[in-house]
Amino acid sequence: MKIKFYLNKKEIEIEVDPTIRLIDLLREKLNLTGTKEGCSIGECGACTVIVDGKAINSCLMLAYQVDGCNVITIEGISEDGKLHPLQENFLKTGAIQCGFCTPGMIMSAYALLLENPNPTEEEIKDAIAGNLCRCTGYKQIIDAIEVSAKELKG
C-alpha cells in the first residue's frame, strides 16, 4: 500500500505493508530509532509520537493509518540544530537518567503544550501519566515541562 504523509515537516511517500505497526515503520523502515518500544501493548508510552497534534502510542497504530497525517517524532522537534525548549529544559532540570522513556515523555509534553500552553501541575501529570519512567520519579520531568511552558509563552 502506498502512503503519503508529513513526517517531521517533510512530505514522504512510501510503500508499506498494511499490517505492520507505525513503530516498525519508524524504527525499522525509516531508521528513526529515537522512538522506543517498551511493552508493545500501549502501557509504557515509550513509543509515543504525535499524529495530527495528538500524542498516540505508535505500537497501537498501523503504519498505513498515518496516510495523509502530520507525524512528529523526537527527531523532528529541534530546528536548525537548536534544541526545542522542552529538550533544553529536560537537560537543565535533570529530567533524564537512563533516557529510554525520554523521547516518548518529550512527545507527550510537546502534545500537551500544543493544546494547552498554560498547564497546571495536575494537567502535566495527566498528560504524562501514560509514560512510565522507572528512574526519575517524574519530579524533574514535571519541572522541565513547567519551565518550558513558561518560556514558550514568552
Binding site: G42, G45, L60, M61, G130
Partner: peptide, 9 residues
Amino acid sequence: IGSLQIRNR
C-alpha cells in the same frame, strides 16, 4: 480511561 495516548485513539 487508560492514558491520554489511549484516549486519543
